[in-house]
Every structure is written in C-alpha cells, then in structure tokens.
C-alpha cells in the first residue's frame, strides 16, 4: 500500500464540514466544485496557512502541528491563485524561499527557468514588466526553488488565457512526471482536472460529495450534484 502523506479526520474549518480524506504519495489530486465550497481553504490546511477549527490532520502519521511550520511550508509548496511577486526582479523571487533557509546556490536559477519555460534573459527583468502568464510561471518557479515534496496549486491558471493555460499545464505535467511530485490542485476547470489528475474530489457545500479516479468519475457520476456540475461546466 502506498505511503499515506495526509490523513484528515473530521476536519471543520469555516465552510468545510466534517472532511475525512487520505492522500497517498505520488497522487495527483484535483479538487473541484462550485465557488464558495471551501476548495482554497482545504488547500491552505495542507501547509498550515490555515488550521482547522476542529478535527485532526496527520502528516506522515504524525499530527501536523508537531512539525516546524516554516519547514512544513517549504516541503509543501503552494502556488497561489495570483502570483503576488516580490520586488524587484525575477531572480529576487527565485532566491526568496531558499534564502530563508540559507540554501540558495547560484546556478539554480537556470534550472528553475527551464522548468517553467522562461528564457534566461528574464532573470534580471523587473517583475512589473512581465505578462500575466509569465508572472504565474515565475510564481511556480519560486515555489519549485524550495524543492517541495508536495505541490499545492490554487487555481494557478484561473487568470490566464487558453494558450497560457495549455503551456503551463504542459510544464506541470513534465514536472509532475520528472519529479514524481505529489500534487494537490484546486481547479474550476473540469477539462484541466481530467488532463492533470489521477484522483478527483468534488467539493460542494463544504463537503466531499464524491471522489474517484480521473477521468472515470466524470463519465459515471454517482451523485446528481456532480452530474449538474458537469453539465454547467
């Protein structure tokens, strides 16, 4: 049996009601559902940007609050919905995470830009000069700079056009394959979930209404709610 990374037991947080969930190493979980169903809140629980109001979260079998918070966040890197880049340059952003832990090694920047398909000339570019797609790529590279074991993605392509979505998805696929990254991604795009995920969680009204293998769960939804959600998306 695969190693369990996260176990959530009776977790409640704001809109989330009684979430029970187990995530195994190497899985690519896609969390989808209507707005306000608690998808981002659920994602934030995995690296303690938020904590549950009640219930327990275990990380590698131990209570998640027994881990050092900065280290936990470094290992469980999140890419937020908007890039929120720091001043000034692309390089400053790539160095930020590793520098916090005195782990930045010059030379890393080329590899990181490669991961996200940006040319090396971008290193000294001010972040304000980047396009929306480029900013999100830098944000992804910045998270990867910390060498995370788990990648948490909060609708990273929601503000991008189709062309950018497609190329970032390709980068993500290559990354997930080459690094065997466990990935948990929030998306409102069902096609994206199909393309990228191995397991889907359908969240509605703060509850996991349905979960199953991808893309199979879209072909035969078990609940009316999921069927309706598929129809309107």
């Amino acid at each position: 049996m695969a190693e369990s990374i996260f176990d959530l037991k009776h977790v409640r947080k704001r809109v989330l009601k009684d979430i029970n969930l187990s995530i195994q190493k190497g899985e690519r979980i896609m969390i989808f559902g209507p707005s306000g169903s608690g998808k981002s809140t659920l994602l934030h629980l995995f690296n303690r940007l938020e904590d549950p109001d009640s219930g327990q979260i275990f990380y590698y079998g131990e209570p998640i609050d027994s881990y050092d918070i900065p280290q936990l966040r470094k290992k469980n890197g999140i890419v937020l919905q908007y890039p929120y880049l720091f001043p000034e340059t692309v390089l400053d952003n790539l160095k930020y995470g590793p520098s916090l832990f005195d782990e930045w090694q010059s030379g890393n920047e080329d590899k990181l830009l490669d991961y996200v398909n940006l040319p090396k000339e971008y290193l000294d570019k001010p972040v304000d000069d980047l396009s929306g797609g480029e900013k999100q790529r830098v944000s992804l590279a910045r998270t990867l700079a910390n060498q995370p074991e788990i990648l948490l993605l909060d609708e990273p392509t929601s503000a991008l056009d189709d062309q950018n979505i497609e190329s970032i998805e390709e980068d993500l696929m290559t990354l997930m394959d080459s690094k065997a990254l466990t990935t948990i991604m929030v998306t409102h795009n069902l096609h994206q979930a199909k393309r990228l995920g191995t397991r889907g969680l359908f969240l509605a009204d703060g509850m996991i209404k349905e979960e199953g293998d991808l893309p199979g769960m879209f072909d035969q939804p078990k609940t009316d709610e999921l069927q309706k959600f598929i129809n309107v998306n």
Binding site: P70, R73, I78, L80, Y84, F86, P87, Y96, S139
Partner: peptide, 20 residues
C-alpha cells in the same frame, strides 16, 4: 496581503514576511 501570504507560504517567519 497577497505578498505576505506568498512569503509565509514559502517558509518565511512573520518577521521575514513583514520585512517589506
């Protein structure tokens, strides 16, 4: 707010995240 959240998510302590 967003940048501070990003800094925290990368492992910054509140002191480091509030630097700017």
């Amino acid at each position: 707010h967003g940048k501070i959240l990003a800094a925290l998510s990368l492992g910054a302590t509140p002191k480091q995240a509030s630097h700017l």
